[in-house]
Computed example of a mutant assay.
Amino acid sequence: MTSSSRCTLPFTPVLSWGTWPVLAATGLGDLLVAVLWPLVVAKAYTLRAAAAAAAMVGSFVVIFTLILAHVLHGATPAIALIGPVVLLHHRWLVRRHPREQPMAVHLARRAAASAQ
Rank of each mutant, 00 (worst) to 15 (best):
V33Q: 07
M56F: 08
G74Q: 05
P77Y: 10
P77A: 04
R48F: 08
Y45W: 13
L39H: 10
G58L: 14
P21F: 03
Y45L: 14
A44G: 12
F64M: 12
A69N: 11
P21D: 06
F60T: 07
A75C: 15
I63E: 09
G27E: 14
F64Q: 08
Y45Q: 11
W20D: 11
I79D: 04
G83R: 04
V57Y: 10
W17D: 01
L88D: 06
A44V: 01
V33Y: 13
L31A: 09
F64Y: 12
L87Q: 08
A44R: 15
L32S: 15
F60W: 14
A42Y: 07
A54S: 13
K43W: 08
V71M: 07
A75D: 10
V22I: 10
T46P: 06
V14G: 00
D30E: 14
V35A: 10
A55M: 07
D30H: 05
K43P: 01
L23P: 03
S16M: 03
T76F: 04
A75W: 10
A75K: 06
A24D: 13
A80C: 09
I82K: 02
A49R: 15
L47I: 03
V85S: 11
A54H: 12
R48A: 08
W37N: 03
Y45D: 12
A51G: 09
A80T: 10
S59W: 15
Y45M: 06
T19E: 13
V61M: 12
Y45S: 04
V85T: 11
V40T: 07
W37P: 00
L47G: 12
R48L: 05
V62Y: 02
V40Y: 14
P84G: 04
P38Y: 03
A49S: 14
L32M: 11
V14F: 07
A53E: 09
A44W: 10
V33N: 02
H70S: 15
G18M: 09
H73R: 11
S59D: 15
L81W: 04
T76L: 09
L81Q: 05
